[in-house]
Amino acid sequence: MHSDVTIIGGGPAGLATALSLEALGLSVTVLERAPLAQLAEPAFDGREIALTHHSVSVLQRCGAWARIPPVGISPLREARVETGRHNHPLTFDTHGKGVEALGYLVSNHLIRRALYEEALSRPGITISAGTGTRRVRDGQGAVSVLYDGGEIETRLAIAADGRFSDIRRLQGIGAIVHDFHRAMLVCRMAHDSPHHHVATQWFDDGQTVALLPVNGGASSLVLTLPPDRIEALRVMDRDCFNADIRARIGNRLGGIRLVSTRHVYPLRAVYAHRFVTHRFALIGDAAVGMHPITAHGFNLGLKGQEALAEEIGVGLARDGDPGSASVLKRFETRHRLATAPLFAATNGIATLYTRDEMPFRQMRRAGLRLADSLSPFKSAVTNMLMDKRKSA
């Protein structure tokens, strides 16, 4: 079997990459371990993705945005950051920016379904579900992807199988893994008071809490605690859970109650030592898995696949080879420049705002008050959060 490009992993990053490369006229095969039913109708997994304006334009250009139901797209009009109780908040909004929202919150499962439906409609994309990939083997002018039941000869193999990528490891690529020794519980909570499409994140003693506004009088709760305490909350009786959360958030938003399943994710950030080898590239969390504190993980994944597609387009125009060393080298340079500073800064922020020793509490309280008084700083951060640059 032959394919111009083979993508290992049919999650959002992998499917977005497939759409971008198919648009260049390439044949693309996507190998995904999960069964077809999970691709076609992914279940709610608790995660709400904060999409920048640039990410929305990428999804529009590839045809996926139109497949997301409008009721599932919630505008984010203001973001508030607080530390402790009754402290001066740092706020970001769209005043003077000429747009209605900083960005848009969309459930991860809706993005996954939209990308899958669009990929299924493309004649140049073949999706093989329920297929485990064993390894990638070098060849002359190509590589072979060995999977359960077969082998594909391809000019470029791409790993998009998550931050703990087996294929990355089998290719001999190591990674920096920053374990925050915390876990994150996410779920949807209905409440009596309106959220006015304002996201609030605060760093309390011993916990980090975020409430992300979604349509329908509800918010996505994101609670970060040590893993054992998170597990206790995951299995807690619903009424006890509601009472616990009300106490944790200080009765914000009035009466609040659980209206979804609860999901838990370990907090580990990952940064691959390399993004490419011979006719092989890493995309999405397999390349860079961010701490969610700055909400840039999925957006960086979309920008990474966009950069790869642009460099492949240049390579095709020059010599017709999507997996040449020069193409991959340019992609790696671009993606490292785009991600390394933000990865380091995000880890630093996460450390500062999750440590409870007195010096850290004092620094973050003073830092928020100072930052909120600096208009140029707030404007720069707001522009970064929005990322209004249009796709090519």
Rank of each mutant, 00 (worst) to 15 (best):
C240Q: 11
V270Q: 08
H273W: 06
L253E: 03
D239F: 07
Y265W: 14
G255F: 05
H278T: 02
R234L: 11
N242C: 13
R268V: 04
A281Q: 04
S260K: 12
I256F: 05
D239N: 12
V235S: 12
H273I: 02
I245G: 09
V259Q: 08
V235I: 02
H263I: 01
C240R: 13
V270L: 13
A243R: 13
V259H: 04
R279A: 08
M236T: 00
T261Y: 04
R257E: 08
A269M: 11
H273A: 14
M236N: 03
R238P: 00
I256T: 10
R246K: 14
F241I: 06
S260L: 11
D244V: 09
L267V: 03
V270R: 14
I249E: 10
L258E: 10
H263N: 09
R252K: 13
A269C: 11
P266T: 01
V270N: 04
R234Q: 07
V259C: 12
V235Q: 05
R248A: 14
D239T: 02
G254N: 12
R268L: 10
A243L: 06
R234K: 08
L253I: 02
N242A: 15
F275I: 05
C240I: 00
R274I: 00
M236V: 01
L253M: 12
H273Y: 06
V264Y: 05
Y271S: 14
R262Q: 10
N251Y: 10
I245Q: 08
H273P: 01
R252E: 08
D239L: 14
T277D: 12
R248P: 00
R274D: 07
D239V: 01
V259E: 09
G254R: 14
F280C: 11
S260W: 04
H278V: 02
H263Y: 13
Y271M: 10
G254Y: 06
G250N: 05
A243H: 10
N251R: 15
I245R: 06
R252P: 01
F275W: 06
R274Q: 10
I249K: 10
T261V: 05
